Amino acid sequence: MTIATPLLSVADLAVTVPGPSGPWTAVAGIDLALARGETLGLIGESGSGKTLTGLALLGLLPSGARVTARRLTFDGQDLRGGEPVLAPLRGRRLGMIVQDPVGAFNPAKRIGWHMRAVLRRRGDRRPDAAACWLSAVGVRAAERVLAAYPHQLSGGMLQRVLIAMVGALEPDLIVADEPTTNLDAVVARQILDLIREQQNRTGCAVLFVTHDLAAARHLCDRVAVMVAGTIVEIGPASAVLEAPRHPYTRGLIATVRSLAARDPILVEMVGEPGRRETGGCPFLSRCPHADPLCRSDPPGLSALRPDHFLRCHHPDV
């Protein structure tokens, strides 16, 4: 998909992390463009590099990790300068909803303390501002929640509070990293609706990291499918999830459908989800259609149509 003036533009992003045998490349060749008001889903198995990619964009990787990119811009500003460039943007124009809301809070401080810290950053000193933002995400007993410590609230309530805090920042880009993990289906759907409401209100862009295909279908305009640290298919959510073209995407969706149908014999993909090949296709060792070309020549990202791209030598197999 070609976006005339993307809010976020990424070309050839790579992440190298320390390992027991030395540094290794966990993410490579990531190309993304994200428009204002758009939700792009990063989907794939655990270990595929989704979270690393999201953290790399915000400069939140642990020490020792190295990020490189041929292009990495946010609203035209080059982010490759690292912390001096990113620090003024985080918490103002860049926000994040983390996978584990418990870890996002200081356990020794009440929820009200956290909310006031965010509101001060935005210059909002209204006495009832914290309660108003909690009410906006469906918290009825706002004063009780503001007086509570994080451990006194459920995971679903903490996620609501976190979304209220991010909403109060009114960022232009939100990275939502598995925000419905460990929540029951009803609460998870409510959380997704809250993210959509936030987007509709402010026009922000959302990078939605998930392994939940149903959540991606519900929330995303486009999806990018990752395997072994590389995007192998990207396009409109309806096209990719309903008529996948890459063998990995087809296998991923087949396993989900198998679980949903409660088949007596579950469909599974063999191999190690996070393993990167030393050459050739990133899905090489797990693909039933791999041939000598796949082993010798890494496929590039080619266009099936103007808004649907695939990294595969055999898209019609």
Rank of each mutant, 00 (worst) to 15 (best):
110 R>E: 13
151 H>W: 04
157 M>K: 06
134 L>R: 08
125 R>D: 15
184 D>N: 05
210 T>D: 05
201 R>D: 11
174 I>W: 00
211 H>V: 07
178 E>L: 03
176 A>K: 04
107 P>Q: 10
205 A>N: 03
142 A>L: 09
130 A>K: 04
151 H>T: 03
203 G>T: 07
105 F>N: 06
188 A>T: 10
163 I>V: 09
193 D>M: 11
144 R>F: 02
190 Q>T: 14
188 A>F: 05
147 A>E: 05
93 R>H: 12
123 G>Y: 11
178 E>W: 00
202 T>Y: 05
92 R>P: 12
151 H>Q: 05
142 A>R: 06
137 V>G: 03
152 Q>H: 02
151 H>P: 05
193 D>Y: 07
105 F>K: 03
91 G>P: 11
120 R>L: 14
215 A>V: 12
200 N>R: 12
93 R>M: 10
148 A>F: 05
111 I>P: 11
189 R>N: 15
184 D>T: 03
91 G>V: 09
153 L>P: 11
205 A>G: 11
159 Q>C: 06
170 E>M: 03
215 A>G: 14
168 A>H: 02
168 A>W: 00
165 M>W: 03
208 F>H: 01
165 M>L: 10
180 T>N: 07
147 A>T: 05
96 M>P: 00
99 Q>I: 04
179 P>N: 08
144 R>M: 07
153 L>I: 11
187 V>A: 09
166 V>W: 00
195 I>E: 01
176 A>N: 02
215 A>T: 06
196 R>S: 12
127 P>L: 15
114 H>E: 15
102 V>K: 04
120 R>N: 14
202 T>V: 12
142 A>S: 12
156 G>W: 00
109 K>E: 13
123 G>P: 15
91 G>N: 09
137 V>A: 02
176 A>V: 04
215 A>W: 02
103 G>R: 03
124 D>N: 15
194 L>W: 00
115 M>G: 13
182 N>A: 12
103 G>M: 01
169 L>G: 07
94 L>M: 05
190 Q>K: 12
92 R>A: 12
199 Q>T: 03
214 A>N: 08
196 R>D: 14
202 T>Q: 07
120 R>M: 14
193 D>Q: 13
198 Q>D: 06
202 T>M: 07
122 R>C: 13
166 V>E: 00
170 E>A: 12
159 Q>V: 04
119 L>Q: 11
202 T>K: 06
209 V>D: 05
129 A>Q: 14
186 V>L: 15
125 R>H: 15
104 A>H: 01
118 V>Q: 09
215 A>I: 10
125 R>N: 15
130 A>W: 03
96 M>G: 02
131 A>T: 13
154 S>K: 04
101 P>F: 04
160 R>H: 05
157 M>E: 06
127 P>I: 15
197 E>T: 12
156 G>S: 06
144 R>S: 08
118 V>H: 11
187 V>R: 00
152 Q>C: 09
154 S>C: 09
185 A>I: 14
102 V>M: 10
129 A>C: 14
196 R>T: 08
186 V>T: 14
92 R>W: 06
120 R>V: 13
101 P>Y: 01
116 R>Q: 15
212 D>A: 10
188 A>E: 08
206 V>C: 04
